[in-house]
Design a protein around this nucleic acid. Structure first.
Lengths: 213, 213
DNA sequence: TGTACATCAGTGAACGCGCGTTCACTGATGTAC
DNA sequence: TGTACATCAGTGAACGCGCGTTCACTGATGTAC
């Protein structure tokens, strides 16, 4: 058994349980029994429950941020004359998200649900951690976003990006339940890819909606 | 002291604390000490913490649902020839939300934040309760929604309504944190009312976005 | 009008329980001489 | 090569604490006769 096996088993179990139940509704005892490790192992390896939460996020956000920075740099080098358009920008983000799970072993929906929870459930420690850890990738994305939507004031742009984030996080976190409902009611099967395809025009249209005064 | 005074003081305190901290992060001891009532009074009047949570929602959702049904009926009687358009429909919903706080004493932002939490934090008991309690208003709204977007297939309409719901719930549940960020970065204050005003055109544009194949 | 009883809002203290965390300890592996 | 020691992952049991809930009780008010 490799040295890091216990650590990874804890992270795998915590990731799934946090996504299913939220942070304060998931106890260390649930995590350690699902992971088949000793209760004290969490505090031994991570120090505290809060530190475990941060580690869960790091494991998928770090590769995502790395992918995103690389991809943004790559594409912008081919767009020296004109800014990257919104559809391309959104495409880059979604493709970078899809690239990650192969590394961290979990599905896209768990990934997205956690992102949603990070916004709605954090008590401060997590938000602070994410802000300082991933500010570079976020700023890079925002720079391109600014160039792609010159017609928006910075306040409008800020809010519309939050709206996009909200739509995505919420939809992805409940995609399983929603797919079941629609399959029951309308006998139509929806894969995550198909939902994302429906999502992108919705987001792009919202982002570029006329401003009202 | 009127008979219902303790009940209302508990509801007032619970409403504010739930909105600030979420449900499982708010203890009955916090609520009763803020309300200046005995700890046992919650279980005496409501029976359990879950029942208190449901009562908090009832106090603002019941008048809202009543407003919404009345307003939808009123407006549709003047639109016998053509269906109500989307902007009007969304306007009705937001105005019905704004009408409520005068009855339940709290601000719109507390109201909206609770709505967001209902989606992101409920453990089942709340979702079931809301579904069966307010299904009539919801179905009525959906009927008008269907008429307002005849160009959409029912599958597309289903997903786009979920997108709208997601955007709203997510934004409202994290509105405080987001308002703080934008106030720090751009020195602009954003009230909930202003955010809702920004949200509506975003949602309307997304809902009516061209379909892609 | 007075008495006995019922009802009900509210109380103070305690209950058992699950929580995150701590601590002394084990046993395997690596390292120095 | 053998011995002494250090390091470190992992363990079992317990810690104190805050939680939702319960219960016997009080005291005020209403009601029947």
């Amino acid at each position: 058994m490799a040295q890091s096996d216990t650590v990874n088993r804890i992270l795998d179990a915590a990731e799934v349980l946090f996504a299913e139940r939220g942070f304060s509704e998931t106890s260390l005892r649930m995590i350690t029994s699902k992971a088949n490790v000793n209760l004290a192992a969490v505090n031994y390896h991570f120090g505290s429950k809060n530190a475990l939460i941060q580690a869960v996020f790091s494991r998928f956000l770090s590769p995502f941020a790395k992918n995103l920075e690389a991809e943004l740099k790559r594409v912008s080098e081919r767009h020296t004359d004109k800014p990257i358009d919104i559809e391309t920008l959104l495409g880059i983000v979604t493709s970078c998200i899809v690239m990650v799970p192969a590394q961290s072993k979990t599905g896209v929906s768990v990934f997205m649900r956690l992102l949603g929870l990070a916004y709605t459930q954090s008590q401060g420690h997590l938000r602070k951690y994410l802000e300082q850890e991933y500010s570079r990738a976020f700023k890079m994305f925002m720079k391109h976003m600014r160039e792609a939507t010159p017609q928006l004031t910075s306040v409008d742009r800020f809010w519309r990006i939050q709206f996009m984030l909200g739509t995505t996080a919420f939809t992805m976190s409940s995609i399983e339940a929603l797919s079941d409902i629609i399959e029951n009611e309308m006998q139509v099967h929806s894969s995550t890819e198909e939902v994302v395809k429906r999502l992108v025009p919705f987001l792009a249209a919202g982002l570029q909606a006329p401003l009202q005064n």
